[in-house]
């Protein structure tokens, strides 16, 4: 708690100085969740001076329950946030003028995990069954999926843990393949006990983590934002080449912030996530960039399910120095 306070203190101090002047070299990056290997690229870019060599003095702020990254960016307490695409669109819906400056995770990692011995052999079996589900932006692809498949489960709110699922309080739960799914396995559950389905395999995957800042920030400091995005992506490239060191670095963040987690879970996370960041031969998307088609499809889905009501052209949402250069 003490450390957390001190970081918040620093954050507030930085925010105070930054609000006086337009941020030039100080960049505060806020994460959507607690420290974990999901953010290893940013740790690496900071640790190995990729930000510094671009003249950036970066502070990384972990997220978690009680800390809303969108709010921090909107309120000016952070400059850049890592957000899932759906969260960024929802921020837009709620009047937060964020723009995408880089798309890190282009491939979806969402999945449904169900108890096999509860009679769930395939997803159709979830009809009328209790399924714990994240709220708002993260639930959109699932709702989309269930809607398309014509399955009507009973949804139970799911927040930061899958304890309800582990205690058989629900028959299925939403999960990130790189996080909750492996957490379930690390609670002693054998994969053979589970029925799992990846949304992307069913065609309902949408891009996840991207880098976002306020449109005004991007417009005011286009080169800082561009340099930050490029250095962040370079950080991810470094991670791909130095996975063990990246894990060491991740574990340092975890330990520093008392975030529960272990190295084997972080390893799983990293190895599962990297193929969603760096495209393979068959993938349509490019490393670091949001694909126009994926954006349109995501927006359409969210609009269809009433999550957002936006008429937001790709070119406005997706910032680049080429198109938006002053």
């Amino acid at each position: 708690m003490g450390r957390r306070l001190s970081i918040t203190g620093v954050l507030v101090a930085v925010a105070a100085t930054a609000s006086a002047e337009v941020p030039a070299t100080h960049v505060r990056l806020v994460l959507p969740w607690r420290h974990q290997a999901q953010f290893a690229g940013y740790y690496a870019a900071l640790k190995h001076g990729l930000y510094a060599q671009d003249g950036l003095d970066v502070t990384i702020v972990g997220g978690g329950p009680g800390r809303d990254a969108v709010e921090l960016v909107r309120g000016g307490q952070a400059d850049v946030a890592v957000l899932p695409l759906s969260a960024a669109l929802l921020a837009r819906e709620h009047g937060g003028p964020v723009v995408n400056v880089a798309q890190v995770v282009n491939r979806s990692n969402l999945m449904l995990v169900a108890w096999r011995n509860r009679g769930i052999r395939r997803l159709k079996d979830l009809e009328g069954r209790r399924v714990s589900m994240w709220q708002e932006e993260l639930s959109a692809p699932f709702l989309d999926f269930f809607g398309e498949e014509g399955i009507k489960p009973i949804f139970v709110p799911q927040y930061f843990s899958v304890e309800l699922f582990l205690r058989r309080g629900v028959d299925a739960c939403a999960a990130m393949e790189y996080n909750e799914y492996h957490g379930i396995l690390q609670a002693g559950v054998d994969p053979s006990q589970l029925t799992v389905a990846r949304l992307r395999d069913a065609g309902f995957g949408i891009p996840e983590d991207g880098l976002y800042c306020l449109e005004s920030v991007a417009r005011g400091n286009p080169y800082v934002v561009a340099r930050f995005a490029a250095a962040s992506l370079a950080g991810w490239r470094w991670v791909a080449d130095h996975q063990d060191e990246a894990l060491d670095l991740t574990m340092e963040y975890l330990r520093h912030d008392h975030v529960p987690g272990n190295r084997s879970h972080m390893r799983w996370m990293l190895t599962t996530l990297l193929p969603s960041i760096f495209p393979s031969a068959g993938d349509q998307w490019t490393f670091g960039r949001l694909r126009h088609e994926d954006y349109d499809r995501t927006l359409a889905r969210l609009t269809d399910h009433g999550v957002v009501h936006l008429n937001l052209p790709f070119e406005v949402f997706c910032w680049s120095t080429e198109t938006h250069a002053p």
């Binding site: 396995l185 690390q186 609670a187 002693g188 975890l254 529960p260 987690g261 272990n262 190295r263 084997s264 879970h265």
Partner: peptide, 11 residues
């Protein structure tokens, strides 16, 4: 709080 006996077994 960081490890489970299963994560230790995995590692």
């Amino acid at each position: 709080m960081n490890e489970t006996i299963f994560s230790l077994a995995e590692a």
